[in-house]
Simulated assay, not measured.
Amino acid sequence: MSKPSLAFQPTPRPRPLSTQQETEKLVEATHDLGFGRQTAAPQPVAKPAVTPVPAPSAEPKAGEAALRKPAALKFDVPDELWDDLRMAAIRRRVTVKYLVLEALEAKGYAVDLAGIPEDGRRLR
């Protein structure tokens, strides 16, 4: 009569994935990258000389405006105003953001409404 096979086998003992020599080679090759462990106090790092940064000009350079991320504006409004804005946006099939930017443009602020989709869909 033979022994029934066990449903669960014992866990195999862990084996190192690399040898000591491979580990030493890796530490030596990546020493300048800062991955090695510090065995002594770190050496003081000389601070680079500070150079003055020129003040930004009022007008962006060519192509710079396309790279700049738009700033976010967040504020709280009363619930009744929010409901009115949402209903007006629904009726016109635009977003609340579009309504606010449209109102800012009507007050004389420079807003490019052509670059903002009215219905909130992102251009892909």
Rank of each mutant, 00 (worst) to 15 (best):
A41T: 13
L33G: 05
G120E: 08
A103F: 04
S2Y: 00
R91C: 01
P60N: 09
K69P: 14
T95C: 06
L17V: 09
A71H: 11
E105I: 01
T30A: 03
A41Q: 11
E118I: 03
S18W: 14
H31T: 03
L113T: 03
P70Y: 02
A40N: 10
A29V: 00
T19F: 00
E105R: 15
I116D: 02
R124L: 14
F35C: 14
T19E: 04
P60G: 10
R13F: 06
G36P: 04
A49T: 12
I116C: 07
S57A: 10
A110D: 15
H31W: 02
A72P: 11
L123I: 14
L33M: 11
L67Y: 10
A55Q: 07
E80A: 12
E28A: 14
S57E: 08
V77K: 02
P70D: 06
F8P: 00
E24F: 08
L6H: 01
A110L: 08
A55G: 03
K69E: 12
E64K: 14
L6Q: 04
A49V: 15
Q43H: 05
L81H: 11
A40I: 08
Q38L: 11
K47G: 06
A114D: 15
P117W: 06
P42N: 08
R15N: 11
P70N: 11
A110H: 10
D79M: 07
P56A: 10
P117R: 05
A62N: 06
P78N: 11
P52A: 13
A58K: 13
Y109I: 02
T51A: 11
P12M: 05
T95D: 03
A114W: 08
Q43V: 02
A89E: 06
D119T: 09
Y109S: 05
A41H: 10
